[in-house]
Amino acid sequence: MSTTISQALQPAFATGEFITQVFLVSAALFMLLAIAMFYRAVKGPTTQDRVLAVNVLGTNTVVVLALLGAGLGEPSLLDIALVYALLNFLMAVAISKFTVERGGVL
């Protein structure tokens, strides 16, 4: 039903260019923070640090997708954000098992 939803939403976005710009700029700023967080993924030092950084990046991605969805007038991007919201913690859970005895308890 994507067409009907986005049509129904048109009035909401009619608040103007300004809000659209706000969403796009803030998405860019969130991305800038993402680069800062990525520093930790590169630096480490431990694997846990890296996973932590990627986990934070995942949350950030959810936000950026939502902002993009609002900024570009494309509500379907929220569905993609939902996938990350549901599955993002999987890697942290996996690594918590993996680092214990090299996966011996998997």
Binding site: V54, L68, L72, S76
Partner: peptide, 27 residues
Amino acid sequence: VVFAAYSLGMALFYAFLLAPDVAMTEA
């Protein structure tokens, strides 16, 4: 672990280029 971060970025790229199907797959 770092590749997972790359995957996040690519999903955002697909979403930004309005290819939600591909972005969803990447996600």
